[in-house]
Amino acid sequence: MSREVRALLHILVGAAVLHISLFSELYLRYVRRGLRPYLIASGALLVVVGLVGAAAAARELLRPVRDGHDVHGGHDAHEAHGGHDAQDGHDAHDAHHGHGHGTPRTAWLLLLPVLAIYLLQPQALGAYTAQHSDSTTVRPAAATGGFAPLPATGPVPMRLADFDARAVWDTGGSLKGRQVVLTGFATPGPGAGGWYLTRLTITCCAADALTSKVEIGGGDAPPKGAWVEVTGHWQPDGRTGQDSAVPVLTADRVRRITEPGDPYE
């Protein structure tokens, strides 16, 4: 790959990274919020490397023009004494690099990921991923470090993963009689009209996403993938006490909302 193409790719990839991290929050579809400074630094570094490479390539292209003019003896003197050697050197340069500065056509395929960011803007993981994922964030209390007391007043906004952990593992029953507010998207559940409120949790990026879900009772099922806010009460006689259990929430209110700027927990 020629130096010019490498410089162009560095600049375009760096600009794409800056586009999603510095000038917008599209990066939240791919990684967690705490990684933003690293993305900005990486994008800026790629742009700088590309600009340095472009400047070096420009000097390389202009060098034969400057060398062809003898500031002491004129252009004719250069041709008389060095023209043949220059031609031989140019031929050797072309032979070494494979017909000059030609670039394999396949190298331009590296632009496809950049174009995808600008033109397609892939969406965050959602209902399809959750339905086909076997991984969950429900963990024993020992793994979560125990459960802190809930606020005395309600309803209590909670992360869906935290609600799952309390419903399954909190032997103190901190959820009993408490009204909670959960946010997520709808996925199909068991039986006709059944549905889950679902959310994806990431540790680093979308590639390690884990699924949290709660079976909702007492509310009409929203369209698959629709984002909703559910206010309700934990159903103690739901399926609890096992790692594979899915807690049940009796809905008092289901409200449609727009997708959050940060779709992951």
Rank of each mutant, 00 (worst) to 15 (best):
S2A: 11
E4G: 06
L12E: 07
A15N: 04
V17R: 01
I20L: 10
S21R: 05
L22I: 07
S24I: 07
L26W: 05
L26D: 15
Y30M: 06
V31G: 07
R32H: 09
G34Y: 13
G34Q: 15
L35D: 14
P37H: 12
A41L: 14
A44C: 09
A44P: 10
A44M: 10
L45G: 14
L46I: 02
V48K: 11
V48L: 15
V52G: 10
G53Q: 05
A54R: 13
A54Q: 11
A54I: 01
A56D: 14
A57T: 07
A57R: 01
R59I: 03
R59K: 09
L62I: 05
P64N: 10
H69Y: 05
H75S: 13
A77G: 09
E79V: 09
E79A: 11
G82Q: 09
G83F: 01
H84V: 12
H90A: 15
D94T: 05
G98C: 03
T103I: 04
T106S: 12
T106L: 06
A107T: 14
L110R: 05
L111M: 09
L112N: 12
P113C: 06
V114W: 02
L115E: 06
I117C: 10
Q123D: 15
A124K: 08
G126C: 14
Q131G: 14
T136N: 11
T137C: 08
T137S: 15
V138N: 15
R139Y: 00
P140W: 00
A141I: 01
A141G: 12
A142V: 10
A143F: 04
T144S: 14
G146F: 07
F147V: 12
A148H: 07
P149W: 08
P151L: 06
G154P: 10
P157G: 13
M158V: 07
M158H: 06
M158Q: 13
R159I: 01
L160G: 09
A165C: 12
A167G: 06
V168G: 00
T171K: 01
G177M: 12
R178E: 14
Q179M: 04
V181I: 07
T183F: 00
F185D: 03
F185T: 05
A186E: 01
A186C: 13
G189C: 09
G189T: 03
G191I: 08
A192I: 11
G193I: 03
Y196I: 03
Y196Q: 13
C204N: 14
C205T: 10
S212Y: 04
I216R: 02
D220M: 13
P222D: 08
P222L: 04
K224Q: 15
V228T: 11
T231Y: 02
H233W: 03
G238L: 00
T240W: 00
T240E: 00
G241F: 00
Q242D: 13
T250H: 08
D252W: 02
R255H: 11
I257F: 02
E265S: 15
